[in-house]
């Protein structure tokens, strides 16, 4: 039980770190990573909860939940990264345009 508790507490600690990162960081990539840290924390708590039968047998339901949760987190992260890339490409386009205007003005 104590080991389970340790896992759960570590998970909660990760969650806190992630939430702090999400609200304190402005950079998109760091925010996406922060959400994934929150996810890791939650999944750790879930897996720790699988070790709950007195016989020592592992409860499969939390494992199924964590697997699904990981799939969801991966998909959401992929979408978030796609948006971040799109925003970055737009920003690059804009700076390129500004740079070209500067060159034109200088020339």
């Amino acid at each position: 039980m104590t080991l389970t508790l340790w896992y759960a507490l570590t998970g909660v600690a990760l969650l806190v770190v992630g939430v702090y990162g999400l609200v304190s960081r402005v950079h998109v990539l760091r925010q996406i990573m922060a959400v994934n840290i929150v996810g890791a924390g939650v999944f750790l708590v879930l897996v720790a909860g699988a070790h709950r039968r007195p016989s020592g047998a592992i409860d499969p339901v939390p494992h199924a939940m964590v697997l699904t949760g990981i799939v969801v987190a991966v998909s959401a992260t992929a979408v978030a990264l796609a948006f971040a890339r799109r925003l970055r490409a737009d920003a690059d386009e804009r700076t390129d345009g500004a740079a070209r205007e500067d060159e034109a003005r200088a020339g």
Partner: peptide, 22 residues
């Protein structure tokens, strides 16, 4: 993107609640 990040955090907090319930 902002919507997605907020919603992801919301669902992870929800999932932690589910873990506690289970």
């Amino acid at each position: 993107l902002q919507y997605l990040l907020a919603a992801m955090l919301g669902s992870l907090l929800y999932l932690l609640g589910v873990a506690l319930v289970y």
